[in-house]
Amino acid sequence: MSVASRQLQSLIRREVLRFVRRPYNTFLPPLITNVLYFSVFGVILGSRIGTISDVTYIQFVLPGLVVLGAISNAFENASFSIFHGRWNEYIHEVITSPLSHSYTVAGYVLASALRGFIIGGLIIGVGFLFTSIPFAHPLYLVSFGVITTTLFAGLGVIGGLIAEDFDHLTVMNQFLLRPLVFFGGVFYSLDQLDGLAYTASLLNPMVYMVNGVRYGMLGMSEINPNTSLVVLTAATIVVLFVNLVLFKRGFGITD
């Protein structure tokens, strides 16, 4: 293994151990939240809503809840880890090391994406307790899982670098991320929207994620999954590039 690989591995190891060793903060909350979501939206309300495009309501909302859990955790992991490191200045341990800028970005993004991916998997596991999942296109499911968690881990890196207070992290999570998810077709079908609302929804990246994961799990999608993959991949490349530029400039880290 090369020196650079060992450097990257060390950063990923540190980042993964940080969330693995705190399951009450990282794994348990999304599990409980999703049991509640499935119980209320799936079982109690879902029985009154009936089916959407031939799938039960609980099956319909499941992909959206997987996306919600996965991206929230990917974003939160990267943003918190970086911001907390800045706040307490121990991010200097990384910055003063010979890790390249690109490997530093890779370390934070990959570890955070992994957390999002694991949480997404756990939510699918919870979903199994409430309904059946056909996994119509597993490769698409994995692809969308990887790309969405990577994208939001990258956004989390930006959030962690630009935040100046813990409040800013809350603002990003609650006032930006959550509305995008709720208006991203998690709980309703885009077909129910009129022309303007439908068009506006297409500007929301969440719509592509939710539909892509829904296609992978249920085989149904309101948007061509390949189009979604292209849009999300392009967005991810842009975000990772921004990450790299920020680290190169030492934004939020160096004076």
């Binding site: 060992r6 450097q7 591995q9 190891r13 490191g85 200045e89 121990y90 341990e93 010979p98």
Partner: peptide, 25 residues
């Protein structure tokens, strides 16, 4: 200033730092 990773026991903090410099585990 004290700028040490608070999440890990100090031995691991040192292992991580060495790792960032490419030292095998």
């Amino acid at each position: 200033e004290f700028n040490v990773d608070r999440f890990f026991p100090i031995r691991e903090v040192l292992e991580h730092k060495a790792g960032y410099h490419g030292v095998p585990a």
